[in-house]
Write a protein that binds this DNA or RNA. Structure first.
Lengths: 213, 213
DNA sequence: TAGATTGTTAATCGATTAACAATC
DNA sequence: TAGATTGTTAATCGATTAACAATC
């Protein structure tokens, strides 16, 4: 079976976004050199990526069907059958994610939120119920939830992750700034702002050195 | 000169975080096998990474000095001399980032925010002034700001990026869901939630197939 | 047709891992 | 000393790029 690297997987939503934009503009066929110029990837890379997930092949001298490719990308990314998720930690960042309307279109339905604060539990954020941590394991088990978005403070994250795993969670989207320790059959994907920032600053310094150093 | 891949650069803040935790626990020397078990990287990779940025070498049979390594990592990551940045788009996500206290310790001082909404400009968020978009170019030029955090909606992001570039910004930390088109001397680092989510879901499905498929 | 773009096959490049002598 | 861990050098692995015949 074809395997995909993290980088490659991450490019598919980028393609999908651009293809949807192209469709709105009325573009029905698009070539890899065009996509390459637009996205900053090489055209060979783009051809390889799309070949791996599209059923139809592109037409020489024309390119790929925008409509067909969108369908194939959505199929591949699982946007056609969204997963139900919960969010734990409805503070600043968690609240922002709950208010973000885009996840449903990206295959993720955030069903409910959980927070340790008594001030929040019983309330709603963006139309979603916020429950106390006490009911978290029961909620996960009862509904068979498999994905959790983890937006609690770093010092609480490992403990919450343990609870999630014990309750049957299979995947954790971790926004907390630490490396979670979970069993190998649980998937963790980190949004690590410190890492991203380090890359940004280092690349900027590099260019500075090149231009006027 | 030694070059660093994005992945490698992104690991340094992960090391730093763990080393600081170890220091708090009173651990003064740490070995690569220990770090490997804790972080899920191979021990060889960890040795290579740390060798690239540490002045002292590790001691056979012991490991590396936690204190020295923290100093070297902070030096390498530039946390000792923080960069001043601005944030554009003080909505849900932007607000959450402004309220996040951690950036100062990660080499980034967010100085001020800008937002198109008249309701926000003139207000403060987390003690930081929010200004109208009209004064953005002047602010950047006057203060020589080089880094911008971009948290505006996707349909406004390219236009704002153009403004930032024209005003002299050298690096954009882009949270908007699109591929920005900027000159090659401007650094862009994307926090792409859709990409991260795609990786999470795909890896989860893989494990599912392996275990009961 | 001519020529742009495709998919495929081979080459390159770089990151990670393996092997191992050096060390305290 | 013995043995765990180090840093270095070589091998592997995988992703990206290059080359090119096929195609409309």
């Amino acid at each position: 079976m074809k395997t995909f690297s993290d980088n490659q997987l991450g490019r598919y939503p980028v393609y999908l976004r651009l293809f949807k934009e192209l469709l709105e503009e009325g573009t029905l066929v698009v070539s890899s050199p065009y996509l390459a110029a637009k996205l900053g990837y090489s055209e060979e890379l783009i051809r390889k990526d799309l070949q791996a997930v599209c059923r139809e092949s592109g037409r020489p001298r024309k390119g790929r069907s925008v409509i067909d490719t969108i369908a194939d990308l959505e199929q591949f990314l699982g946007y056609s059958k969204p997963e139900t998720a919960i969010l734990v930690g409805a503070g600043n960042l968690g609240g922002a994610l709950l208010r973000f309307p885009g996840f449903a279109q990206h295959g993720l339905n955030i069903d409910a939120a959980f927070d340790a604060s008594y001030a929040l539990s019983g309330k709603q954020i963006a139309g979603k119920n916020v429950y106390s941590m006490a009911v978290l394991p029961g909620y996960i088990k009862e509904r068979g939830i498999k994905i959790a978005v983890l937006t609690v403070p770093g010092d609480a994250a490992q403990e919450v992750a343990d609870t999630l795993v014990k309750a049957g969670i299979e995947a954790i989207w971790n926004f907390a700034p630490l490396t979670l320790d979970v069993p190998s059959d649980v998937t963790v994907e980190n949004i690590d702002l410190a890492s991203s920032l380090a890359v940004l600053c280092h690349r900027m310094q590099e260019k500075r050195g090149k231009n006027h150093g």
